Simulated assay, not measured.
Amino acid sequence: METKYSKVKSALKSKVMDGTYTPHQKISSENELMKEFGVSRHTVRLAIGDLVTTGWLYREQGSGTYCADRSTLNEQQSQNNQKNIAIITTYISDYIFPSIIRGAESCLSQAGYQVSIFSTNNDHGKEREILEKILTQQFDGIIIEPTRSAFSNPNINYYLNLERLSIPYIMINAYYDELEPLSIVMDDEKGGFMQTEHLITLGHTDIVGCFKTDDTQGTKRMKGFLKAHRKHGIPLNPTNIITYNTEEKNTKPTEEIEKLLMSKSNSITGLVCYNDELVIKVLDVLRRRNIKVPGDISIIGYDDSVLAEVSEVKLTSIAHPKSEMGKAAANTIIDLINSKNSKNNEQSQVDSIVYTPEIVYRSSTQDLNRQKLTT
């Protein structure tokens, strides 16, 4: 159980790290802190004393306690020879993330950087904990995959504090729009469009789209799904759009698809999936109901992961750059660090990267036009 002293100390550190207290700003008085945390003056003084000793705060006799300028400390620490990069992803060992991380790590290691890897599990609270840990240590730069990027992020102040401390960061797979950061992403709207148009050109008109919408990748892929229907003049049944969030990903999509398949009015011939991971779960549902792919229903995935070729049905899927994205992220963050540390004050141009999606064709989709010609 966290002690009262630790609670006060942690809260004050958080206010420094999220920018509530800026360098040389006077912090709340002892009386105010006593009321805020419901603790004794002795507890408040212990917490403040420890933070003064460790360089987070400083005192001015007769005036009060102030937030220290930790950017000066960062500059002093950066004089050492160890170079550190943090990589923050939503997951580490799942799905396509190991390939992205390996791509980045190989380039960073060759450039002499020590790499620390963190996972948020797509949780804002965990993201905040990681950002606080990073801000208390010395990192030259950060590669970040945003957490629930489709939602308003409660940790924006931490990123603004990174900028104030001149710690470069870039975002991969998605980005927080309000920050307008350097980013390395796919054109997910076009990818969702291509998934859907592929099925439409094969003669499918009753197509279900299933998208994870707490990340911008999913909302953009859904937008592409809608655009393809509009372009080809195909009416879209609202019940054919299934959305879900991180907590629901192992249950809701397959449950909703099974309901549609059980409906008496079911005439679905095509399924657009948010990613290959979802396709594998859907294949289990279809197998139980003795529905053949692509004979009875065509499916297209996204990411062209290893799952696309290990399943009994080889999946048509949108290719994700994976390792290439990781390498590009590593090279970009190194360029930013070098530009920041340039003694000649030469700022090199570093731009965001948007990958154009491509379809990898396999055997999970069927041409209904050809089938109609032979009957």
Rank of each mutant, 00 (worst) to 15 (best):
G192L: 12
E256T: 07
M262E: 13
E248A: 08
N240Y: 14
H198A: 09
E178D: 08
T219P: 08
K223Y: 12
K249N: 11
L236G: 00
F225N: 00
I241Y: 05
P253K: 01
G192K: 07
H204D: 01
I241N: 04
F193V: 06
N155E: 05
E258R: 12
I170F: 06
N161Q: 14
L226Q: 12
I143H: 04
I200V: 06
A174Q: 06
D187H: 07
S149R: 05
N240D: 10
C210H: 02
K223V: 13
E256F: 08
I142Y: 07
S263G: 03
R221F: 09
G224A: 11
K259C: 08
H232I: 01
S152Y: 06
S152K: 10
L160E: 10
L162A: 02
Y158C: 12
D177F: 04
I134G: 01
S166K: 15
H229M: 04
Y169R: 05
L199I: 11
I156Q: 09
I134P: 02
P168C: 09
V208T: 04
L261R: 00
Y169C: 08
M262K: 11
T219F: 09
K264L: 07
F193R: 06
E258K: 11
E247C: 12
N237P: 07
G203A: 08
R164E: 14
E178P: 09
Q195S: 13
I184D: 01
G218K: 05
I144S: 10
D215H: 08
D177A: 10
T219G: 05
M186V: 13
G209Q: 03
I134F: 03
T251S: 15
L261H: 01
S183H: 15
E248S: 11
F211P: 09
S149A: 13
Q137D: 14
I207P: 00
Y158P: 06
M194A: 04
K220H: 13
I156V: 13
Y159R: 04
I170T: 07
A174D: 15
D215A: 12
I134Y: 02
I257T: 03
Y159F: 15
L236V: 02
K249H: 12
T246H: 10
N153A: 15
P238D: 11
Y175A: 15
L160G: 11
A150N: 10
H229P: 00
L162G: 01
F139L: 11
K133M: 15
E247W: 02
T196C: 10
L131G: 01
I167L: 03
N161T: 15
I241K: 06
A150R: 03
Y175E: 12
E132R: 04
I242E: 06
S152V: 15
E256K: 14
Y159I: 10
F225M: 05
F225S: 00
F211K: 09
L182P: 06
C210Y: 03
V208H: 01
D215M: 13
E145Y: 02
E256Y: 08
M186I: 13
P154Y: 07
